[in-house]
């Protein structure tokens, strides 16, 4: 009789997810205690984290899918810059917001198929492929326009309206010191990001494609032996990543309302670190988007705390994120070691 049968045991990955969620709660609660007087306890603070990071949530969902196969996609930050620049310049030249969005989503998908083809079918290292993709996108952004292009109300009233639309929530408001009721709100980008999250969650858990991502990441050779089309699966993963990145790019642009060459630099690293903090293994096969979502929230909370404090240098979020990453990697390897020992 195997030990596993006698006692229902929690998967170590589930425990990792709990740790991530617990950490978020602790961090957030810590923020509330320390900066309650500065308004950290308001529900809107939490919603602001979502608003600021709507784009990152989409990107991290895509990154998680790619990382599940054991790959990586570092082109996402540059792709977002290119998306924003295209949006800004396109609309400035009289294109409508809706056609531009369709074009950008198409570009994302095609770009992803190309990267995925190189990784899946030509079996080139994903790091190299997406690094080339990163240089390409960043370069193209500058080719389109080297100046910062702002999206104003005159350029595109529609896009402007989306960016400034408030979706008011019926709960969680507060009355400010002037006695005025402040209703909590989110932006449309948040709704998009949460939709993406739900869709990818279902995709990963309940569809053939989703499960095959895990299989490929678990053991590529085995997946092939079991009759899965590994090359196609990998290609689709990169397509999904770039496509979700383009959705994220639109959300990002709704926040910044501008296109500029240096936009979203290092965003790919934010996405990777969020996924890792959320329990996704770089080696593939382990992880899920709920964890990644909380990874984004943890990073967002850190920034928010530092911002609320007001006195700390803006480089502090980086240092805190580094420490968190470190802690998580150590925890993960401890779990892996425990698992090995159990087997032996």
């Amino acid at each position: 009789m195997d030990k596993a049968k006698t006692k229902k045991q929690y998967n170590s990955n589930t425990i990792l997810l709990f740790i991530t969620i617990a950490l978020f709660i602790v961090l957030y609660a810590g923020g509330c205690v320390a900066y309650g007087s500065k308004g950290f306890t308001h529900f809107q603070t939490f919603l602001n984290i979502l608003i600021t990071n709507a784009g990152l949530i989409c990107v991290t969902c895509g990154m998680t899918c790619v990382m599940l196969t054991g790959g990586i996609d570092i082109s996402v930050g540059a792709l977002i810059a290119m998306d924003c620049m295209l949006l800004a310049v396109g609309m400035k030249n009289g294109m409508g917001a809706v056609p531009m969005i369709i074009i950008i989503l198409l570009i994302g998908a095609v770009f992803g198929i190309f990267q995925g083809f190189l990784v899946g079918y030509l079996e080139i290292q994903p790091f190299i492929v997406s690094m080339a993709g990163m240089f390409f996108c960043r370069g193209m952004t500058a080719v389109i326009c080297t100046d910062q292009v702002s999206i104003t109300q005159e350029i595109s009233p529609t896009f402007y309206a989306w960016a400034n639309a408030k979706i008011v929530l019926p709960f969680g408001g507060y009355t400010n010191n002037k006695g005025k009721y402040m209703a909590p709100y989110v932006r449309p980008a948040v709704i998009v990001a949460l939709l993406v999250l739900v869709v990818i969650f279902i995709l990963l858990r309940y569809t053939k494609f989703g499960r095959s991502l895990y299989a490929v990441g678990g053991s590529e050779q085995s997946a092939a032996m079991m009759g899965l089309n590994v090359k196609m699966i990998k290609m689709k993963a990169y397509m999904l990543s770039s496509f979700l990145c383009s959705i994220g790019g639109i959300c990002y642009c709704l926040n910044t309302m501008a296109g500029s060459v240096s936009q979203a630099t290092g965003l790919e690293m934010d996405a990777i670190s969020s996924a890792v903090i959320g329990g996704t293994l770089l080696t593939g096969g382990v992880g899920n988007v709920i964890g990644s979502f909380f990874g984004v929230l943890i990073n967002g909370t850190i920034s928010s705390i530092v911002k609320t404090n007001g006195k700390l240098a803006s480089s502090w979020p980086n240092i805190l994120t580094a420490m968190l990453l470190f802690i998580f990697i150590v925890i993960q390897s401890i779990f892996a070691a425990i698992r090995e020992r159990k087997k032996a």
Partner: peptide, 20 residues
């Protein structure tokens, strides 16, 4: 063993031909 260690036993039996 040519199976995926990170998937459940059932998934290893059915992957690629899961009932829908």
């Amino acid at each position: 063993v040519n199976l995926c260690p990170n998937l459940s036993v059932a998934e290893n039996l059915f992957i690629g031909r899961e009932p829908l």
